[in-house]
Simulated scan of single mutants.
Amino acid sequence: MASEYTTTEYIQHHLANATMCNTDTGVAFNKACADAGFWAIHIDTMAWSIGLGILFLYFFRRVAKKASTGVPSKTQAFVELVVGFVNDNVVSTFHGRSALIAPLALTIFVWVLLMNLMDLVPVDVIPTIAGWIGQYGFGMDPHDVYIKAVPTTDLNLTLALALGVFALIIFYSIKMKGVLGFAKELSFTPFNHWAFIPVNLILELVTLFARPLSLALRLFGNLYASELIFILIATIGLWQLPLHFMWAVFHILVLPLQAFIFMMLTIVYLSLASEDH
């Protein structure tokens, strides 16, 4: 597929999302959506993230329904290992009491990990299949078929995840401290004097808003850079195979690490929000 484009076109094509938007003439896709801004939807990000989320729920629910107290199967042992790993981190990090945190942490870790693992699929496989479907199924030019299979390389998705965590931070802060207590924490920390209220508000609000922003940008930046390197490796032709293998082996460690960091920071932020000073 790389030979059909110049290097610049090849990279741009692989980094472009399948975008849908509404225009004055009806529903449009990709290039016609250039000016749609906020109202454009990345349908590949939506499809892959929702699909992988359903896969996670189906797989874990199926294992849970078939779980036995006897000698576990390899699949059950694997799921129990993942659940135990997440639970141990929640118990050691979250100092409040909430039935939501452990399931939330498990969902974040497994879901983000599955989305990250799509980065190991060779970069030409899914776009080529999508191009064939567009060409032979819908009569489209394959060059006009765009798809990104790694949802976490889309800043819109990582920001959406981070904003969900941010909403929980606000919820737990108000639940544990009350509205006035939360406002007092923002106003009288770190300097416990009324004269420093403006300074405290600036420091605390910057810290508060930096949490979801850092969550989103850290995950997006690492996965986007990783995908870009895979694409650059693919541009060199047949010589890409050993380089692709080496980079993929390295990423077997990096991809779970990014999911773990996102999960742990979520637990830490919610633990801080739950502390009643």
Rank of each mutant, 00 (worst) to 15 (best):
I174N: 01
N89S: 06
L208K: 12
A259I: 01
R97M: 07
L205K: 04
P256Q: 03
L155V: 14
T189V: 10
L217I: 12
G178C: 09
A40L: 05
E9D: 15
L205I: 15
A18M: 05
F188Q: 04
E227P: 01
P151M: 00
D144E: 10
A195R: 15
Q76L: 03
V249Y: 08
V123G: 09
Y224A: 13
I267F: 02
L238D: 13
W132C: 00
A28Y: 06
A34T: 12
S271F: 09
I133E: 10
A77K: 11
F109Y: 13
H251N: 14
L52A: 01
V27L: 08
K66C: 01
K175G: 04
I43V: 15
I267N: 05
P151N: 01
T266C: 06
L238R: 06
P151G: 04
L232W: 09
A16D: 13
A16C: 05
I11A: 05
F166R: 02
A248K: 00
V206T: 08
G181C: 10
Y136T: 07
D88S: 15
D119T: 12
L55E: 00
V27Y: 02
F29A: 03
V112L: 10
I236Q: 06
L55Q: 09
D276I: 15
R97H: 10
T152M: 01
H143Q: 12
V121R: 00
L15P: 00
S73T: 15
M1H: 07
I169N: 10
D124E: 09
G178W: 13
D276R: 15
N17F: 14
M140W: 11
L223H: 01
I202W: 12
I197M: 01
F196H: 11
G131A: 15
G134M: 12
V86L: 03
